[in-house]
Design a protein around this nucleic acid. Structure first.
Length: 470
RNA sequence: GGACGCGUGGUGUAGCCCGGUUAACACGUCUCCCUGUCACGGAGAAGAUCGAGGGUUCGAAUCCCUUCGCGUCCGCCA
């Protein structure tokens, strides 16, 4: 017999069905017992009466405990009027079981799965596979799937090509700290994991792709926050032959449609999205990601705002200047002259989309000419050799008819977090890492056998043992 | 790297400020009873050296010090 999903049981009254899933709750009345059977599609009540049950079913009736994995066969019947439960979608029916097969018993879970809101996150992460059975995690993963599906179809409908870029790539010391990957074939050399596909997507523009997007995993070896993980997902977008307005209107339209497509109760507080210059928002709100909700406690209010005209550079700790966004960002066309006169006063053609106090998109119109790109590298204090070694490939690419281009990238996890009303992005990531970047389920990072280290040409400097106090 | 907060049966908490006999409550677990429950109900039981180490004290979950673990924020995140 083919398996019926629990969601579909309401449409099959009177039919004999085979259901598979987990015991959600067991209510034992003695000679009669009820089972709430759960699968990914929902929960339905199974009635166990010895007179109706096979010998195997009778035995199972005694043994069943929460989270046992079972197959139930039985007949779907309409409940009597007094027995209807209006609080559940399947509350009008129940399955009178003929047979129950225990596919796998379950130990008592280390925490109750019904409501995990009060359970320590450490425990939930260690047993993430159980945590994922909770309605909260299922709901969040379903929302995440909807958001990704929406972005894909929205962009495909507008001529974008989804392209994958490498995860083993070349490091640049500017910007965030990168994860290193040793090379077995090239002793002493390393790949790094990308902190963003930035250079590749620009090279795709040089390559004539014109409209690119990617659901891209990015890696940053920095300290964690509630809205930051060592690996996270970006919706990464780049377009050729565009100016700032083109990018902003694309994203604004997409986000408005996203909210309509995947949420029920959310309202956008202002359309078109308000725009603030960096100078304005810093003066008014003291932040470049202000929470513009009228009521900061209203989870259903979505206050989008564009922040534009970021400064191009800022002073670095070392005394020089560094890029606020990244070194491929172009200056505002009207500030092109300022770049040479007073770099720190130059405004970048960069933009962020903020939502309820979180930066959810950040992007810019890029430099596409060798001369200007080289000038920016010089301003950042790089000498000719360093520029050539680190970015020669970009400069050379720009010499082959690189089109004007620009783009944007989102923190996809943050968007899902906000739409799911979750307090941090770990709740919308199936297997997140802890604040100190560990995976409690798998036990990463872990030590590596000597033979494998040798193969990777790695020698460990033994961590110094802390001096004992005498 | 820094600041702050939290560690009490399997889970979540109370007790700590103001030290005092068997550390309390809820959920879960186990046994028994129950044919209409749906967070089923009823009766009973087991389960905690109060994160760890040290100190003060006649006496420490409670006060002090150290340490470990976890979280939030700052730094950091081109």
């Amino acid at each position: 017999m083919q398996r019926t999903m629990i969601r579909d049981t309401v449409a099959q009254i009177g039919e004999e069905v085979l259901l598979q899933g987990w015991v959600h709750v067991r209510r034992d009345m003695g000679k009669l017992a009820f089972l709430d059977l759960r699968d990914r599609s929902g929960i339905a009540q199974v009635v166990l009466v010895p007179a109706e049950l096979s010998e195997r079913g009778k035995a199972a009736m005694k043994e069943l405990r929460p989270e046992f994995c079972v197959t139930v066969t039985g007949v779907i019947q309409k409940r009597g009027e007094m027995q209807v439960n209006p609080n559940v979608p399947t509350g009008g029916i129940e399955i009178l079981a003929k047979d129950v097969e225990i596919l796998n018993a379950a130990k008592t879970p280390p925490f109750e799965l019904e409501d995990t809101s009060g359970i320590s996150e450490e425990l939930r992460l260690k047993y993430r596979y159980l945590d994922l059975r909770s309605s909260r995690m299922l709901r969040n993963l379903e929302l995440r799937d909807k958001v990704i599906t929406f972005f894909r179809s929205y962009l495909h409908a507008r001529g974008f090509l989804e392209v994958e870029t490498p995860n083993l790539t070349k490091g640049t010391p500017e910007g965030s700290r990168e994860y290193l990957v040793p090379s077995r074939l090239h002793p002493g050399r390393f790949y790094v994991l990308p902190q963003s596909p930035q250079q590749f997507k620009q090279l795709l523009m040089v390559g004539g792709i014109e409209r690119y997007f990617q659901i891209a995993r990015c890696f940053r070896d920095e300290d964690q926050r509630g809205d930051r993980q060592p690996e996270f997902t970006q919706l990464d977008i780049e377009l050729s032959f565009v100016d700032r307005e083109d990018v902003l209107s694309l994203i604004e339209g997409m986000m408005i449609e996203l909210v309509k497509a995947v949420t029920l109760n959310k309202r956008i507080s202002q359309v078109p999205f308000p725009r603030l210059s960096y100078a304005e928002t810093m003066e008014k709100y003291g932040s470049d990601k202000p929470d513009l909700r009228k009521d900061k406690n209203d989870p259903d209010e979505l206050a989008f705002a564009w922040i534009v005209d970021f400064p191009m550079f800022e002073k670095s700790d070392a005394g020089g200047i560094q890029a606020v966004h990244h070194p491929f960002t172009s200056p505002l066309p009207e500030d092109r002259d300022v770049l040479d006169r007073d770099p720190l006063k130059t405004r970048a053609n960069a933009y962020d989309l903020v939502l309820n106090g979180y930066e959810i998109f950040g992007g810019s119109i890029r430099i596409h000419q060798r001369e200007l790109q080289n000038r920016v590298f010089e301003l950042l204090g790089l000498d000719a050799d360093t520029i050539e070694e680190r970015f020669g490939h970009m400069l050379e690419a720009f010499e082959y008819g690189a089109p004007p281009h620009g783009g944007i990238a989102s923190g996809l996890d943050r968007i899902v977090m906000i739409l799911a009303n979750e307090p941090n992005i770990r709740e919308v990531i199936p297997f997140p890492k802890t604040g100190d970047a560990r995976d409690l389920l798998m036990g990463a990072p872990s030590e590596i056998e000597e033979t494998r280290l040798k193969e990777a040409h790695i020698q460990i400097r033994k961590p110094q043992i802390a001096n004992r106090k005498t």
